[in-house]
């Protein structure tokens, strides 16, 4: 464990907390893409499929359970309790292409042709693009509540901090996973436009509005 990785994981926890706080306090899921949330549920279930069979540490065990449970809880809240506040007319990204593309990427790039390795690789590729429906929705609306963009920002920081973590592990631990690293860089690049607008607007105390 190094500080980049710990910081990334904590940013991830913070993002989940912000999202659930936004939905329950406002009693509204407006501006949140349920498609992105469904993709994250798929990502965590496939990534942590061995959560009960492969022990790494108490830390990873607890975090995995939190990520799986909170993503399902979020989808459940959006689909049931706050269904009427959703924006299906603007949440129109075709996620079947993201899922299909991730299956193809996992078939080509994986560490071993075993079920667990294939679903792990699938989850990595799918996570790298899972935010797209949410960013697409943001673009269609043109503006968003600050709490929504803080959520996306925290989630982006999570993956961005994993990049120095991989550099650190490559240098000091002789550890390098090319799939996680390439997908992680792609994921961070997807956020780069968003980070730029976030910096230009929100950090300077303005409303998040796309130019």
């Amino acid at each position: 464990m190094n500080l980049f990785r710990l910081g990334g994981d904590l940013a991830h926890l913070v993002s989940i907390f912000i999202l659930l706080q936004k939905i329950t306090a406002n009693k509204s899921a407006a501006g949140i893409s349920i498609k992105t949330q469904i993709l994250y549920s798929i990502v965590y279930v496939t990534r942590y499929i061995d959560v009960f069979t492969k022990w790494i540490s108490l830390y990873t065990f607890v975090m995995k359970l939190i990520f799986i449970a909170s993503s399902f809880y979020t989808v459940w809240l959006m689909h049931n309790t706050y269904k009427s506040t959703q924006n299906p007319q603007i949440d129109t990204f075709k996620i079947r292409y993201l899922i299909g593309g991730s299956i193809i990427m996992a078939a080509i790039f994986n560490h071993k042709l075993t079920f667990n390795e294939l679903v792990w690789s699938f989850s990595i590729w799918l996570e790298s693009v899972a935010i797209l429906p949410q960013l697409f929705m943001l673009q269609r609306t043109g503006e968003a509540e600050n709490i929504t963009v803080h959520y996306i920002f925290a989630l982006g920081i999570y993956r961005a901090l994993y990049i120095p973590n991989w550099v650190y592990r490559w240098i000091f631990d002789q550890y390098f996973d090319y799939i996680a690293t390439v997908a992680g860089i792609i994921q961070t690049l997807i956020y780069s436009d968003f980070f730029y607008v976030y910096y230009q607007r929100v950090m300077k105390g303005k409303k998040f509005e796309l130019p």
Partner: peptide, 10 residues
């Protein structure tokens, strides 16, 4: 190198 890959990250 690839034997070191053990998916210990989240």
């Amino acid at each position: 190198q690839s034997t070191k890959v053990k998916h210990d990250e989240l």
